[in-house]
Amino acid sequence: MAMSAEISDVQVPKGPRAIPVRKARGGGLIGLVFLAAAAAAMMQQEQIRAAEAWLMAAVFDGILGGASYSVDDIIFHNVGGGQPFALQVTGLCSSAVLLAPIAGLAGVLFLMGRIPVSRLMPAAIIALVIVSVSNATRYFMIAAAQQSWGQQGFDLMHHFLGSFVVIFGFVAAIIVLVRAAVVRKGRSGSRPKGRRAS
């Protein structure tokens, strides 16, 4: 049975309706953590450089000629294999100067709250891994060239080819974050619904 009501009894909401939008929980907190990590990467450069030197010495020791070990931020390699060499992980060459801006950018994107955490977190981790691996690759290229061609090999890898690898990795990391941040329209969630042809 159809029911009728007086016009005065019908309540019509006035003004624009607020449509609740669910946001991924924890994005703000995660963003603050990433920003804190970016600041810590710059403030703890000495510790990071020493850790990098230790890690790369372990890699050199198993792959390159001679023995390798580290003292603070200096890597000694090809020890006992002929002419020994030494590489110092300086502030400008450290991965900290690459990790800090990537972590900072990821933190800002998390704080914006427009990107699902499940989508941005993998991209942030991948971006951090990319810059770390690219810089480690640069260290390896420098040491290998130094053992093979001496100072000329060091200059070639340190100033040219190695720097290109790091720049390429840094740009790739930013692209990964930007792609995760771009909201794609016209997908299945926003396709106009129409009637089926009968």
Score class of each variant (00 low, 15 high):
R22A: 15
R22M: 13
R22I: 13
K23R: 12
A24E: 01
R25F: 00
R25M: 00
R25Q: 10
G26F: 10
G28M: 00
G28V: 01
G28S: 05
G28C: 01
L29Y: 06
L29H: 05
I30C: 10
G31R: 07
G31P: 14
V33K: 11
F34W: 03
A36Y: 00
A36G: 09
A38S: 08
A38V: 04
A39R: 07
A39N: 05
A40G: 04
A40F: 05
M42A: 12
M42D: 01
M43Y: 03
M43Q: 10
Q44Y: 09
Q44F: 10
Q44P: 04
Q45F: 03
I48A: 09
R49A: 11
R49F: 02
A50D: 13
A51N: 13
A51P: 15
A51S: 14
A53L: 00
W54V: 08
W54I: 05
M56R: 07
M56S: 14
A57I: 05
A58G: 14
A58F: 07
V59L: 04
F60G: 06
F60V: 01
F60I: 05
D61C: 15
D61A: 15
G62D: 02
I63W: 12
I63C: 08
L64M: 12
L64W: 05
G65T: 08
G66P: 15
A67M: 03
A67C: 00
A67L: 02
S68L: 04
S70Q: 04
S70D: 02
V71T: 14
V71P: 04
V71A: 15
D72M: 09
D72K: 08
D73N: 10
D73L: 02
I74C: 01
I75Q: 07
I75N: 04
I75C: 05
I75F: 01
F76M: 02
F76G: 09
H77W: 00
H77G: 03
V79R: 06
G80C: 10
G80K: 01
G81S: 02
G81M: 01
G82A: 07
G82W: 11
G82Q: 15
Q83W: 02
Q83F: 07
P84T: 03
P84S: 11
P84F: 02
F85E: 00
L87T: 02
Q88M: 13
T90M: 03
T90N: 11
T90Y: 05
G91S: 12
G91W: 06
L92D: 14
C93N: 02
C93Q: 04
A96I: 14
A96Q: 14
A96R: 06
A96M: 13
V97W: 04
L98P: 08
L98K: 12
L99A: 12
L99Y: 10
L99K: 10
A100G: 09
P101H: 04
P101T: 03
